[in-house]
């Protein structure tokens, strides 16, 4: 019985070891791979991310200048962030929220003109 007393007293005097969930939410650490974000203004539509993605969730159209990610097929490995030459891809540390329907990230950017097109325009 006296073995327990020490534990009982310690438990009474220390604060709760669990969180009161809706009030206190556990955050994520710096560098957590949460949501994939693309800054489409800096994207050059090189398609590196699309080629390297293991789950093939990214679709880049370099003619139309679109960048799309099937958010539910993404495995959050962060390979696309590593290979992006302009660092326009990044990951925030928040989770993507729970969704009731299929979500796709679709971004429209300005397609990069080819050099000969630019020359022709001039």
């Amino acid at each position: 019985m006296f073995n327990m007393t020490k534990n009982v007293v310690t438990n009474l005097l220390t604060k709760s070891s669990t969180r009161l969930y809706p009030i206190a939410v556990r955050g994520h650490f710096e560098g957590f791979r949460g949501t994939l974000v693309c800054n489409v203004d800096e994207c050059i539509f090189c398609r590196s991310c699309m080629i390297k993605c293991p789950s093939q969730c990214i679709t880049v159209d370099n003619k139309a200048g679109t960048w799309a990610c099937d958010a539910m097929a993404c495995v959050y490995c962060g390979v696309c962030v590593d290979v992006c030459p302009t660092s326009c891809l990044s990951m925030t540390k928040e989770h993507r929220p729970v969704a009731t329907e299929h979500q796709t990230i679709f971004l429209q950017g300005v397609p990069k003109k080819k050099k000969k097109d630019e020359a022709a325009a001039e």
């Binding site: 009030i23 206190a24 939410v25 556990r26 955050g27 994520h28 650490f29 710096e30 949501t35 679709t59 799309a68 099937d70 958010a71 928040e94 989770h95 929220p97 299929h102 979500q103 796709t104 990230i105 679709f106 971004l107």
Partner: peptide, 20 residues
């Protein structure tokens, strides 16, 4: 991938505490 939707980042997702 045909069904493309605009992705709105949800603002509801906030953390009250940041223990780490």
């Amino acid at each position: 991938r045909d069904i493309m939707q605009a992705y709105n980042r949800d603002k509801r997702h906030r953390f009250v505490t940041a223990p780490p």
